[in-house]
Computed example of a mutant assay.
Amino acid sequence: MNRWDSTPVIRFFGGRKTLFLLGILLMIGLNILVFSNVWFIFEPVAVFVKTVALPLILSVVVYYLLRPVINLLEKWKIKRIWGIVLTLLVLIGLITLVIVLIIPFLEKQLISLSEELPRYVVDLISSMDEWLKNSYFSAYYTNMFQDVDGMINQVPDYISSYATQTVEGITSIISTVTSVVVAIVTLPFILFYLLKDGHKLPGVMIRLFPPKARPEVSSVFKGIDHQLSAYIQGQIIVSFCIGVMMYIGFLIIGLDYALLLAAIASVTSVVPYLGPVIAITPALIISIVTSPFMVLKLVFVWTVVQLLEGKFISPQIMGKSLHIHPVTIIFVLLTAGHLFGIIGIILAIPGYAILKVFVSHFFHWFQRRYNRFAEEKDQYEMD
């Protein structure tokens, strides 16, 4: 028996492999220490990552949406390169159609809503003020808020002030718009090569690992691919269904800005649990100002859509492929939002799913090693 494997503890953790692993962890710690002191040397790398991140993320999302179409065309005996070109042309046509027909209408509704928003807020505060003054809590309310009318009159000034501050920060807005434009321009090129050679990428990366580790690494890649594919494809379809149902419901009840509010609900639905709360806020303000009966109709539409989405659409389209507990999702969203903002909230769930794949495979590997060690120990005791 090797001297490194002379004790049960060392043998349990892999013998010489344990010291090798500890050496790797030590080197990683030293690299982090060095990096924290000379981080400015790697600033160009950070700029490169920030520049590439957005178009790369968008390309991956669209890749998982279009990959089933490309594979289907390939089964129909259409060469992959021509299938990609045909799919991209159709996609560009659909985007152009949306920009020409829908975006101008949404822009008009957004401008109109931004102009009417101060009035909606003032009417909402006035209604609440009137109700509280005539309620059981009127005495407490009067003592706490003695100058509500003055506060109400200042609401438009507050909103105008914030609008002015937004205009003053036009430089940052231009920078953000520039990044988005660059991402959109580079998206077709990255997407083309992803669709053309993306299915070969896992095989190329697997060959970088030792032969004994390749089956385990291949399983990890397949797990990540399944998680991302199920989440992205399912979430986009579910969001589209929510937007359509909301639009139909808002049209039936006669709510103002139906298309804009439905589009907001569709976009925010990509954030589990928190998205619906964000989406219903502007619709709730408009309905409260309109009439109490409109609030009841809005609540009815919202409840029906959420029931249809939760009981029928999501289980059928997404199933339970991620296997993440709702409480875990909430904690992950809150933590990611605090650390990385809106981008963190959007990427929190797929990022957690990928991390879960790594952890689960590592746990299974550790479990197999433990079972093998237990069998070797039993055999050693019998001898």
Rank of each mutant, 00 (worst) to 15 (best):
F48M: 12
K50F: 06
Y162E: 08
L194K: 09
L26K: 08
Y140H: 07
P156N: 11
V38R: 10
I286K: 09
K77M: 14
R372A: 12
S59R: 01
R11S: 08
V167P: 06
N134W: 00
L117I: 10
N37W: 10
F189V: 09
S291I: 05
L19W: 15
R372I: 09
L58I: 02
T87Y: 10
V217R: 04
Y120W: 15
K377W: 12
Y64N: 03
L124S: 01
A183D: 02
F12N: 03
K212V: 03
H338V: 14
K79R: 14
D129Y: 10
I103R: 08
Y273N: 06
V301R: 02
I84D: 08
H361M: 10
E43L: 07
D197Q: 00
I152L: 05
T142H: 11
Y370E: 08
G310I: 06
V271Q: 00
F192Q: 03
I111E: 14
A374M: 09
W302T: 12
K108V: 14
A139M: 13
F137Q: 15
V295M: 13
M318T: 05
F13G: 12
G83T: 02
L274N: 01
V204K: 03
P215W: 00
F331K: 04
P104I: 15
P210M: 07
I159V: 00
I253V: 07
Y136R: 15
R207N: 15
F373D: 06
Y140I: 05
P55T: 02
M318G: 15
R80G: 05
I288V: 11
G223F: 08
G249E: 02
G310H: 09
V167Y: 04
R67W: 13
P55N: 06
Q227E: 11
L259Y: 11
L73V: 09
L308W: 01
I248S: 14
G275R: 05
I242S: 01
G223W: 09
L21D: 12
E216P: 01
L228V: 10
L260E: 02
F363T: 09
V299Q: 09
S138A: 12
K17I: 12
S161H: 15
M205A: 06
E309Q: 03
G234A: 04
S126V: 01
V301P: 05
